[in-house]
Computed example of a mutant assay.
Amino acid sequence: MEQAELTALLTPQGLRMVDEVGPLASTTEVAAAVSRLRAGGHSPDLVSAVVGQAHLRVRAAGKFGPFADRMLFTRAGLEQATRLEVAARHAGRFRDAGAHRVADLGCGIGGDALGMAGLGLDVLAVDADETTAALAAYNLAPFGDAITVRHGRAEDTDLDGWDAVWLDPARRTAGHSETARTAPEDWSPSLDWAFALAERMPVGIKLGPGLDRSLIPDGVEAQWISVDGSTIELVLWSGSLRRDGVRRAALVIRSGAAAELTSAGDTEDEPVRALGAFVHEPEGAVIRARLIGDVARSLDAGMLGGGTAYLTSDTPLTNPFVQSFRMRETLPLKPAAISTALRKAGVGTVEIKKRGVDVDPAQFRKKLTLRGSASATLILTRIGEGRDEKRVALLADRV
């Protein structure tokens, strides 16, 4: 968002127009709204800002629910914002640790500060980008004096009197549409600065789930989080925010229900087992936290082999940490053989999953013959180990 658009938007007329335009879900609706507003004599900056916000509010509903209808966004700010249900859990961690005043450094559009204020915490929200800070101030205004929003650098913030810090380093290039990732030493603030702060006071550091594990300091709790099948973030907790005896955690949220695995460290995998009647795919947070072995042992399952994270067992499982599939048939990893099996089973709709094989599922799908009303899951992977390892396609059904 350009400064001229922000200036036009943050006026009584601009804010009223966003509400009047209502949700714009499709490009057709966006184009029609632009034509209508331009015909009404409104400036290009105002039209661009209003229509952009109306479209972003539709996209934001998945993260912020009904709150999205009164919030303002940038595209990059929405992309990087914490989902409200996750932000509320982060806020609960601060509250349970006895922190009453929390500094949110790198607050973005205010998603995490929203969760903290919702639990009654006093919040200092700081962002280095002037436009983003202005939008955060608008989004957080309903909480009144409970939240102070400032434009400034995390490194320059006076933290005297604050109990704890939530830190979300800017991990992408500057701007509101460009989101290219940068190296840890170029983050704002840098990862080294964040870790040094975490040694001095209780800090929660939000990072990408794919962070190089060798960068994780000793003495912090590393918590990976998956929501509805997507692994969304890694949070490092220090000081009183860190739970006793916990160094690795996998929090899994599906349809609002949460379950968590915790451990004092990485756990050993179970031995490879022959393919059973069921295949189980651990949630991404479990895989990232390296807690697959704990899940396997709790389910009496073994590793499928091939160096992948798949598990297998002979009994069906109901477990929040895995997605389970009932085996139909083991096939060679060849489109012709798979197409023959799919035709015989009348499968016209297929979900393709893969691990451990260099296959593009979208391109592979084009090579398959799909006819019929039935559906199935095709798992492209490797099974066995050593000389017995082989590439296969597992035809299965979701449990």
Score class of each variant (00 low, 15 high):
Lys334Tyr: 01
Leu342Ala: 08
Val165Ala: 09
Trp166Thr: 00
Ser226Arg: 11
Asp314Arg: 01
Gly65Ile: 14
Ala8Arg: 07
Ala125Ser: 13
Gly111Met: 02
Pro217Gln: 07
Val220Lys: 04
Leu119Gln: 15
Val58Arg: 14
Leu78Lys: 04
Thr330Ile: 13
Glu260Val: 11
Gly111Leu: 01
Ala134Ile: 11
Ile109Ser: 02
Ile383Ser: 09
Tyr310Phe: 14
Leu311Arg: 12
Arg398His: 14
Ala258Leu: 03
Tyr310Thr: 10
Val279His: 10
Val47Lys: 10
Phe278Ser: 06
Pro184Gln: 06
Asp127Thr: 13
Leu46Lys: 10
Ala8Cys: 08
Asp127Lys: 08
Val18Pro: 02
Ala25Leu: 14
Glu270Asn: 02
Met303Asp: 00
Lys353Thr: 03
Asp168Gly: 14
Glu233Ser: 05
Ala180His: 13
Phe278Asp: 03
Asp168Pro: 06
Glu2Met: 14
Ala146Thr: 15
Val21Ile: 15
Ala362Thr: 13
Arg398Trp: 10
Glu185Ile: 11
Gly204Val: 09
Ser26Asp: 15
Gly276Gln: 07
Asp360Lys: 04
Pro361Met: 03
Asp266Ser: 11
Gly108Leu: 13
Ser177Cys: 01
Ala362Gly: 01
Trp187Cys: 08
Trp162Ser: 14
Ser35Leu: 08
Gly120Leu: 07
Ile383Gly: 08
Arg172Trp: 03
Val126Asn: 12
Ser35His: 05
Val203Arg: 00
Gly208Met: 03
Ala341Met: 07
Arg181Gly: 14
Met327Gln: 13
Leu370Arg: 04
Arg326Tyr: 08
Glu79Pro: 00
Lys353Pro: 02
Asp168Ala: 15
Ala258Cys: 04
Asp186Thr: 05
Arg297Thr: 11
Asp192Ile: 14
Gly284Glu: 07
Ala222Ser: 09
Leu370His: 02
Ala274Asp: 14
Glu233Gly: 08
Ser375Glu: 12
Leu261His: 09
Gly110Asn: 03
Trp193Arg: 10
Ile216Pro: 00
Asp129Met: 12
Ala49Asp: 12
Gly118Trp: 05
Leu234Trp: 05
Ala137Lys: 07
Leu10His: 11
Met116Arg: 05
